[in-house]
């Protein structure tokens, strides 16, 4: 592991511990605790969507659909002790196993949706995933076992802040590692020029599917968390609008930037909570934001850069006058 990775990890750990201690000391009440947990869930969802839309350059509109799969499957497993997972595994361990099964199921569905569409030009994925999300909703509405339209109730509140924070950290760690690896570079190459990537020996369909399935898996995990946070889920919790909310997080943070997605997830979850009473006005504002960002600042607020502790240090140094630009940054002059 690189030094910078370790610094980032320590930083993240410190925040987690600090927040946990604040909760224990009673500075954070139940409502804010709930919101913090929700933020972590949306971080998982946004960072995974960024993998498809930002890194791979494909356009998925079905994230809510994958979340629905993960949510319902995980809830079924925690609500029915003895179902496939042995009864001996109960409580939190059961929750984690159920989450993973939900994630795997979402990944499998992602594979089925992605296989026929990802061979083709990007626009088809958008419409297929949009249709897929709607179909999942229709199927759930008609599935009596999970309550149909009236919802699936009595799910135990396993998703507390600490466990979800850890899950979010693991998710970001894995996805960011993937992005910076050679496999991630292959995905970025597809985004930049599919034909050139293909002639460099990158099987573009294969890598698009890998990224898509990986993202679907984590969306499933996010869905499972949602179910065990809200304790009741219904098909309309996973409407198209949820996919758009997550899409806006990715776009606002800058397509391709994991740290941007994280910050946008935090910001937008807070805004959504404070505007809860003005549902349609909120959506109008969000959709206008989406349009304006695309037209006026398509690189998002962070401009596709990654924010890290070392970069912050660099910025602070600049602020205090000891200007020492990073190597290779201002290399337009002084070459050759």
């Amino acid at each position: 592991m690189k030094k910078s990775t370790i610094i980032n990890l320590i930083f993240v750990l410190a925040i987690g511990i600090a927040l946990h201690l604040l909760r224990k000391a009673g500075f954070i009440n139940g409502y804010y605790d709930h919101i913090l947990t929700k933020i972590c869930m949306f971080i998982i969802a946004a960072v995974s969507l960024n993998l498809i839309n930002g890194i791979c350059g494909q356009f998925s509109l079905g994230h809510a659909g994958f979340m629905a799969v993960g949510a319902y499957i995980a809830a079924i497993f925690t609500k029915n002790p003895g179902l496939i997972i042995p009864e001996a595994i109960a409580g939190m361990p059961r929750f984690f196993v159920a989450l993973i099964i939900g994630g795997l199921m979402a990944a499998f569905v992602g594979f089925l949706v992605g296989l026929p569409t990802l061979r083709l030009r990007g626009d088809y994925l958008a419409i297929t995933t949009l249709g897929f999300g709607e179909i999942i909703r229709v199927l759930l509405l008609n599935w009596k076992f999970v309550g149909g339209a009236s919802g699936y109730f009595g799910i135990k509140p396993y998703a507390n802040f600490l466990s979800v924070y850890v899950l979010a950290v693991i998710t970001v760690f894995i996805i960011q590692n993937f992005i910076t690896s050679s496999y991630g570079r292959a995905c970025i190459a597809i985004r930049e020029d599919e034909m050139a990537a293909e002639t460099m020996g990158i099987h573009t369909t294969k890598y698009k599917i890998i990224a898509f399935v990986l993202a679907a898996f984590f969306a499933g995990i996010a869905g499972g968390i949602y179910a065990h946070l809200m304790q009741a889920i219904m098909p309309r919790d996973f409407s198209f609008l949820v996919s758009v909310d997550i899409l806006l997080m990715v776009v606002l943070g800058g397509l391709g930037s994991t740290s941007g997605s994280i910050m946008a997830a935090i910001f937008l979850t807070l805004v959504t909570e404070s505007l809860r009473r003005f549902q349609s006005l909120r959506v109008i504002i969000y959709s206008l934001m989406l349009i304006f960002i695309m037209i006026f600042r398509p690189q998002g607020l962070l401009g596709g850069q990654e924010l890290s502790v070392s970069m912050l240090k660099e910025k602070i140094k600049l602020l205090f006058g000891r200007i020492k630009p990073e190597k290779g940054y201002a290399s337009t002059n002084g070459t050759e």
Binding site: G57, A126, V244, S280, S287, L290, I295
Partner: peptide, 23 residues
Amino acid sequence: APRIAALMTAVGLSIFFQNLMVY
């Protein structure tokens, strides 16, 4: 611009019009 930008704008417009009507 890249195609994905126009597609996202189109999605934004769709949501905008629907909710404008509700509003």
